[in-house]
Amino acid sequence: MLGYIDKIREISKRLLDEGRVDMIIGFRKGTIPMMNEPCFVKNSGELSTLVWDSNCGINLANYLTDRKEKIGIVAKGCDSRNIVTHIIENKIKREKLVIIGIPCKGMIDKRKVAGMFENGIDDITEEDNILRVKSRGVETSLKKSDLLQENCELCIHRNPVIYDELAGPLVEEQKDVDRYADVRRIEAMTAPEKWEYFKDLISPCIRCYACRNACPLCYCPTCFVDESRPQWCGKGQDEIDTRTFHFLRAYHCAGRCTDCGACERACPVGIKVRQFTSKLNKDCLDMFGWEAGLSPDQRPPLDTYKPADPGDFIK
């Protein structure tokens, strides 16, 4: 994964110099370890700020919404699927984009790593599958594959689905992944158990809306939680309001979520918000054979009607 950066810079330089794009959207080093941040590079002199490692978990498709410039964007498998979703939903034009595809091997779960070092992490470097973590002068080597984000562990679309350039050879997709074990565990519960499960799950929520802001699907000019006339949902930390927010946020992602994990990564209190969307993803796959963002030529199940659509729930 590390070797990609030279190629990303090389491609970006060419695109910018030839005037094919006005800017490149990529990642630069964050101010603290494991927190790379998105950046917009507009001239080739600044390309050295671009980085690529296993801390680029944020979904860059989020920064494309309604942009008018010509954009070069660095895209992992999940980012590319969200770009497809953006194209389908008319949020960006394909012609405006040059997609620099990244065959991805997963991003590391910053919480898992941080949880292992009580003295904090001063620096983290990586080499193939090895992470070297420096904490108070002590260096520890860890295996990256043990510390992947959950959605990356379960990912079966590591390679970008659309791209114009590639930063490296395509990687082998994971096979025989049980992606919905968590969903089935919840499905097996009784209604009151489910209610309690989600109550516990969201109890630390501070309603900061980081999950919404990190999500490339959430681009409404005014989000329902910000509306005050009418006020759909109370703005305090009342348990029911919080639950309403999470229910609705999840439903707005139905048939669109690519399980990129940006919501979970962004959550400051570590709520597994993917528990809501996973069920919808599973249902979409089971009922409509649909996985979001695989092709710009297919319409999503929620805006097409087929006579064979399941309708047993309608009386």
């Binding site: 499905e187 209604a191 158990e193 209610w195 069920k279 009386k315």
Partner: peptide
């Protein structure tokens, strides 16, 4: 909704034409 703990039966969907008054009464 049921997945998130709402009791089965609490929420219903139906498709009733304005001409189907009897069906409306039945469903209600």
């Amino acid at each position: 909704m049921e997945h998130m703990g709402v009791e089965p039966g609490r929420l219903s969907f139906s498709w009733i034409s304005s001409a189907e008054s009897t069906k409306f009464v039945e469903v209600v």
